[in-house]
Measured scan of single mutants.
Amino acid sequence: ETKSLTLVLHRDSGSLGFNIIGGRPSVDNHDGSSSEGIFVSKIVDSGPAAKEGGLQIHDRIIEVNGRDLSRATHDQAVEAFKTAKEPIVVQVLRR
């Protein structure tokens, strides 16, 4: 079962304390579909994302501050987090 969660993150020394993997390839599949998503791959101990109620590894990131990342490329997702103003509201899907 997958549930949708909304989390609020604040940077600590400029970092949110997690890494992402995935992202849509720069070239779409011929039918326009994509199974890619942006997923949390690593969480830094005691970083902002590790706090209670924070992110978990394998969370799929859907949205950052209202910006849809469900079909974003990896670079677009990285840029969305880099430029996001605080508080950073992150919507994820968690299995």
Rank of each mutant, 00 (worst) to 15 (best):
R11E: 03
T6C: 06
I43T: 04
G22V: 13
N19H: 12
L93S: 07
G47T: 09
L55V: 06
F39I: 06
F18S: 01
V64A: 08
E52F: 08
V27D: 13
S41H: 07
S41Q: 06
G22Y: 12
R94V: 01
I88G: 00
I20E: 00
H10S: 13
F39D: 03
I20T: 05
D59E: 02
L93G: 04
R95I: 06
E86P: 05
G47A: 12
V89K: 12
D68W: 00
V44Q: 14
I21M: 12
P25Q: 10
T6F: 10
G23P: 15
I61D: 02
V92Q: 02
S15F: 07
I38N: 02
E86Y: 04
A72S: 07
I43E: 02
S46E: 14
S26T: 13
S4F: 15
L93H: 13
L5V: 14
H74Y: 15
V40D: 15
E1M: 14
G17Y: 03
D68M: 03
D59Q: 01
E1P: 04
R11H: 04
S15E: 12
V44Y: 14
H74P: 15
G14S: 07
T2C: 07
V8R: 15
R24F: 12
F39Y: 14
L7C: 14
V90A: 09
H30V: 10
H30L: 14
A72E: 03
K3R: 07
I21T: 11
R71H: 14
E86Q: 05
P25F: 06
S70R: 13
P87D: 02
S26P: 12
S13L: 08
I88F: 04
I21V: 12
L69V: 10
D75L: 11
D28H: 10
F39E: 04
E1A: 10
V78A: 15
L55R: 01
S26Y: 11
P25C: 11
G23D: 06
A49Y: 06
S13W: 05
R60V: 03
A49I: 07
R24A: 13
L9E: 02
D31H: 13
R11G: 04
N29D: 14
R67M: 15
G23W: 05
R71N: 14
Q91C: 05
S46V: 07
P25T: 09
G37S: 02
E1F: 13
L69P: 01
S33G: 10
V89E: 08
A50S: 13
G66S: 04
R94G: 01
D12R: 15
K3V: 10
G14H: 06
D28K: 10
R67F: 13
N65G: 04
L7N: 02
S13R: 13
L93K: 07
I61M: 01
G47D: 05
L5M: 11
T73S: 09
G37F: 02
L9N: 03
V89C: 08
S34L: 10
L5K: 06
